[in-house]
Computed example of a mutant assay.
Amino acid sequence: MMESKKSVTGLPALIGLKLSAMSTRVQFPHPFIALAAALLIGMGLATSALSAQSEWAINDGGRMRLILMPGDDKGTYEGALQIEPNAGWITYWREPGDSGIPPQVGVMPGSDFKLESISYPVPVRIDNGPVRDVGYEQKVTFPLVFSGPVAAGGRLEASAFIGICKNICIPFQAHFTVDVSPQTDMGDGLILAEAKAALPEPPSRDFSVTGFSLNDDHSTLHLDLAVPKTDENPQLFVTGPEGTLFLDYTVVESAPGTLSVEMPVARLPEHYDPSGKTWSVLVVDGGRAMESALAFE
């Protein structure tokens, strides 16, 4: 079990952390990316309204930028935050683990745009002795959805705040300006398609949570899972109240296609009542990843 509490108000002090880390990588085949590429190229021959992008913001650990696709007739705009750590550096998932800063994106006050959602590609677990982090060791793109003006044109002003780490963690904050325009950048459409393909899949018949419960003193979470392969050690990432992440578990029962586990979650907030609360679980098993809500009654 691991609990991780993060402070992200302003620019935190540097967080010392050695990262000669061991990590587990998972490859996710997505053959439709090639099809998406072909479709985008075909679209490029017919129209020039594809995307706009900010300048790259750069610091010692890497760079990041914002891309924005044209809005639809309801004022919905897809976009993405691209982060490219330098070799040997990492950045973080929405619950970073023992240290680090989760990615945050915001729209500047007075903007005609509003951030509606941010999605998180499947991360890796990065172990370095007793320190366990969850994030990305290579470039990563977070899909974004904005609402904004229906009329063509306009300007999006936004900011991003992330942690990017090697031997220390450096807070990395940047302001982005994107002018919505009909200029074509074929690469941005492919980047967004690849980012969506890297997201965990929704629950399905062969990969889902079939049951879950907390024991009476809220110290142990029981999970019953339908899994596609039943790896010897599938990875589980359970997020509970804000700032908590649980990774350790004990197998209770395992059979082809099913897995039952118990996870210690003893360090919940004092007097915590899960009723009406929603946690989530990310399961990585057999080269696939699935994320599901855990809604307590």
Rank of each mutant, 00 (worst) to 15 (best):
A52Q: 05
L115E: 00
C169L: 03
I33P: 10
R25L: 08
I164Y: 10
V281S: 00
Y77W: 03
E84M: 08
V252S: 07
Q27I: 10
M2V: 11
G211T: 09
V281H: 04
S147Y: 06
R132S: 14
E78C: 07
A151M: 10
V26S: 14
F32W: 10
D217Q: 09
K139A: 15
H30Y: 12
G189Q: 01
P200G: 00
P203F: 00
P171K: 10
A226Y: 02
H30K: 09
P171H: 02
Q235S: 13
S275D: 11
K166R: 15
V251Q: 05
V140G: 00
G44Y: 04
K229M: 11
V150C: 06
P264N: 05
L11D: 06
A36C: 10
E201G: 12
R288S: 14
V145C: 09
G187V: 02
A266F: 08
S111D: 03
P29S: 06
T230L: 09
P234M: 03
G79N: 01
R288N: 12
Q235N: 09
A57T: 12
H175E: 15
A46S: 08
L190P: 07
L11V: 15
V265K: 01
A266I: 07
T47F: 08
L282D: 04
H271C: 06
P241I: 06
N233I: 06
A152T: 13
